[in-house]
Amino acid sequence: MPRTMLLKSLWNTLAVLMQQHGCIYHKDTHYLTFEGILYRMRTGCPWPDLPDEFGKWNTLFKRFNAWSKKGVFELLFKLLSENTDTEWLFIDGSIVRVHQHSSGAASTEDEAIGKSRGGRSTKIHLAVDSYGLPVHFELSGGQTHDIVHAESLVTHSPASDFVIADKGYDSGTFRDFVEKQGSKTVIAYRKNSRRPDKSIDEVLYCYRHLVENAFARIKHFRAIATRYDKLARNYASMLALAFVIIWLPMWVE
């Protein structure tokens, strides 16, 4: 049997949440299906190369795609991240390379794949709470500047006392927006900033590594560190699943 990721106690918590919200019905095979999806996320292997112990690969992909269409993984992420520490909110963006197998999707939608000098890429825009636990994320093409999604990240995240970010978010408009939301900004200033007083809370700014740690943690999963999914929806579902795995131990005593 291939190495699995979920203890039975973790799976039981997930299964209860999914059954309560009508995502699945009680069926023993759902455990192996979920483990098969996690195996693919962890290893980044093509769906047809999944071990037979998890079931037929086509069945696993169809189940994942169906759950992705229904927004099951995003719902689980939202449910698990409801009880969060709202004092600090850290935001940042990180680029992932897009594998050639992810190109060519028959879609007229924006699949969050951009072109730059480094080739095709996708950017993950992420917000984490005071403990470095993810609370909201968005996708864009890799060439998109961080500031483009800054206001949306703050809007869709829990209200916080402080918003902490690097100099990529140095914008007077964004600072004003955050202050109107009732939060204070701890954002580094660019060297060419004309603001006479560039002082910030250096101690609090040092904790910005929490959002970097979150990126490092999810990029341990190979299907996250490199994008293989053709559709932005499916890659977002994989991301949501990775965040579920981060949150899940907090729900199990």
Rank of each mutant, 00 (worst) to 15 (best):
200 I>F: 05
247 W>Q: 01
197 D>C: 01
223 A>Q: 11
218 I>K: 09
247 W>I: 01
222 R>I: 02
193 S>T: 09
180 K>C: 14
187 I>P: 07
213 N>R: 14
218 I>V: 15
240 A>D: 10
214 A>Q: 07
240 A>W: 00
203 V>Y: 05
214 A>M: 04
200 I>W: 08
177 F>L: 09
219 K>E: 15
220 H>Y: 12
195 R>V: 11
221 F>I: 06
246 I>T: 02
227 R>L: 06
220 H>W: 06
240 A>M: 05
236 A>S: 12
177 F>P: 11
246 I>R: 05
233 R>H: 03
240 A>G: 03
233 R>N: 04
179 E>K: 14
226 T>W: 10
177 F>V: 12
209 H>Q: 08
180 K>W: 10
176 D>M: 11
218 I>F: 12
222 R>M: 09
246 I>D: 08
245 I>Q: 06
252 V>L: 12
197 D>R: 04
236 A>R: 02
236 A>I: 00
245 I>E: 06
187 I>C: 04
210 L>G: 09
183 S>P: 08
199 S>T: 15
190 R>W: 04
239 L>T: 01
205 Y>K: 06
218 I>C: 13
204 L>Q: 08
206 C>M: 11
201 D>Y: 01
209 H>K: 11
192 N>E: 14
249 P>W: 03
215 F>P: 07
205 Y>S: 10
194 R>E: 13
215 F>H: 10
229 D>I: 01
253 E>I: 09
217 R>E: 14
180 K>H: 13
194 R>D: 06
196 P>W: 03
250 M>S: 08
211 V>M: 11
224 I>R: 03
191 K>A: 14
221 F>G: 04
237 S>A: 13
195 R>K: 15
253 E>G: 10
201 D>F: 07
198 K>H: 05
210 L>A: 08
211 V>H: 09
239 L>Q: 00
184 K>H: 15
193 S>P: 04
181 Q>T: 13
221 F>L: 09
199 S>V: 10
249 P>K: 06
195 R>F: 01
212 E>V: 00
190 R>L: 08
222 R>E: 07
178 V>N: 07
223 A>F: 03
215 F>Y: 11
196 P>M: 01
215 F>N: 11
229 D>W: 00
199 S>N: 13
199 S>E: 14
231 L>G: 04
207 Y>V: 03
224 I>A: 04
219 K>I: 03
216 A>Y: 08
176 D>S: 15
248 L>E: 03
181 Q>A: 13
201 D>H: 00
246 I>M: 15
224 I>G: 02
184 K>F: 10
243 F>P: 02
240 A>Y: 02
228 Y>Q: 01
206 C>S: 14
241 L>R: 02
219 K>Q: 15
196 P>D: 06
200 I>A: 02
203 V>R: 12
225 A>T: 13
193 S>F: 01
251 W>V: 04
196 P>Y: 04
182 G>M: 12
197 D>W: 02
176 D>N: 15
223 A>I: 01
193 S>C: 14
214 A>T: 11
